[in-house]
């Protein structure tokens, strides 16, 4: 064929050369799967070992059951109260979180793009945004409760006030940090400003937007729980406040455990969606076997 082809044996076997990226991808997938299995087994062992030591420490009275509870007590609480308390309150919390997350995502991405397109507006309101974003949200919670009442709306408001800025900043940062070489390419090719935006800037910003969305998901969860802890009729945060008030450590720790599981699951789902949407072009956490 030609002198330009490297690895002549690969280039002269089109069939072979065609299968190589596919085979590599398959080998990588299998490798990643095995890695994930090993990782998860190790994680389980760490947690199980921790629980065993904890349980033993309480059984042998090295730790006070009143303050530290015990994995067995926690498991009992979770089993007995799952249908009555854990499930309905979890749904309450997750619903508020999802609403806040959706609003943060849509508004944050839109605001990020608008600010990028209107640099003068961005320059003008920059200090205002910084001031708003640096406000301690827990201090805003009472205001939201006054404005929106004790219920879904005030939780969503607090969570939104966290998530919105995260998505806004990551969207704006992503689109502004586009590789200058690509802008040079776009100019030399004669891209219209619309083409430059849709074919270069927007795709460039997607990984950064995703990173922001993943962070916002967790922060929306935190925002909702915080709001529930201050004043609420339902939700995991409210449940924690109730049980810590009556000194039920098994319940408090059990609910914390449920929250931790939610946080891990949400991150996992977000990683999975990210990997599915970005395809092969960006290295994601999921592909790294996390």
């Amino acid at each position: 064929m030609s002198a330009m082809e490297t690895g002549s044996d690969r280039a002269s076997h089109p069939q072979l050369s065609k299968s190589i990226p596919g085979e590599q991808a398959r080998a990588r997938r299998i490798g990643a799967f095995l890695n994930a299995c090993r990782l998860n087994i190790n994680r389980f062992l760490i947690l199980a070992g921790f629980a065993a030591v904890w349980w033993a420490a309480v059984e042998f009275k090295w730790l006070d059951r009143f303050f530290f509870s015990s994995p067995v007590d926690i498991a009992r609480f979770l089993r007995e109260q799952f249908v009555n308390e854990i499930l309905p309150n979890s749904l309450e919390t997750l619903l508020a979180m999802l609403i806040a997350f959706a609003l943060s995502g849509v508004a944050g991405v839109a605001a990020g793009l608008v600010l990028f397109e209107l640099p003068r507006v961005k320059r003008t309101i920059d200090p205002i945004l910084t001031a708003l974003n640096s406000m301690p949200r827990i201090a805003l919670a009472p205001i939201f409760i006054l404005w929106f009442g004790i219920g879904l709306a005030s939780k969503v408001a607090l969570a939104f006030s966290l998530g919105f800025f995260i998505v806004l900043i990551s969207t704006y940062g992503g689109i502004r940090n586009v590789d200058p070489t690509l802008i040079r390419l776009s100019r030399s090719l004669g891209c219209t400003s619309r083409q430059q935006f849709t074919k270069i800037m927007l795709p460039w910003a997607i990984p950064s937007v995703f990173a922001g969305l993943k962070l916002a998901l967790i922060y929306c969860f935190l925002g909702v729980v915080t709001s529930e802890m201050l004043a609420s009729k339902a939700g995991l945060g409210q449940l924690i406040m109730y049980y810590s008030g009556i000194l039920r450590m098994d319940a408090v720790l059990g609910i914390l455990f449920v929250m931790a599981i939610f946080a891990v699951l949400l991150t996992f789902i977000a990683d999975w969606i990210e990997a599915a949407l970005l395809g092969g072009w960006a290295e994601t956490n999921t592909q790294k076997g996390l």
Partner: peptide, 16 residues
């Protein structure tokens, strides 16, 4: 693509 010796890599991403 064949002329520059990249046959078989049409669907590869730059990072690969």
């Amino acid at each position: 693509i064949a002329m520059v010796g990249l046959s078989g890599f049409e669907n590869a991403y730059p990072r690969q």
